[in-house]
Amino acid sequence: MTADGRTGGHRVVLDEAAFGRTLARMAAEIVERDGGDVMLVGIQTRGAPLARRLARLIAEATGASVPVGTLDITLYRDDVGPWRPAHQQPVLKRTSLPEPIDGRVIYLVDDVLFTGRTVRAALDTLVDYGRPRAVRLAVLIDRGHRELPIAADVVGRTIETSRDEDVRVEVAEVDGRDRVWIGKEVEHGG
């Protein structure tokens, strides 16, 4: 679903061009910090295509081949199980790490950093696969309202939001176009 046809209640934070520029800047920041010898791991769902795109940009800039993995954090969430009020377990998505993570610099990639609970779960997931030299966090949008002591190393855009606002990141691979907008209704968890 897109915001097409809706006149009020939402504002676009990044349009397609700004989206592209933001990713390019994030890739440059990663290269500046760690060079090309990094492994990118996208958190499902929208972190996965973002990680693939950042990896391509880093590879173009450095000539290095940048491995990309995906992580599904559902089984490590703190709100899954019978104590959860909802009656529907989240759909599991693919976890796939292309090579061992031991000794590597890993960049976790996600679309929106909000409470920090997703990142906490992602860190727990990752350590079950090995012992990276360092784990860093790259997010397209930091919208504040953290509930855990977690901060991103590379941020595309920091935006002010109120708690009940919904930050929607649309990624071409999943949603047909690149865009970030803020609306009032909550349609998916960020």
């Binding site: 089984l75 490590y76 599991l92 693919r94 976890t95 727990d124 079950d128 696969y129």
Partner: peptide
Amino acid sequence: QFLEIARRPIKKVPT
């Protein structure tokens, strides 16, 4: 998706 867990170094999730 649960098949993959058997191939991990730590074959356990906290769910």
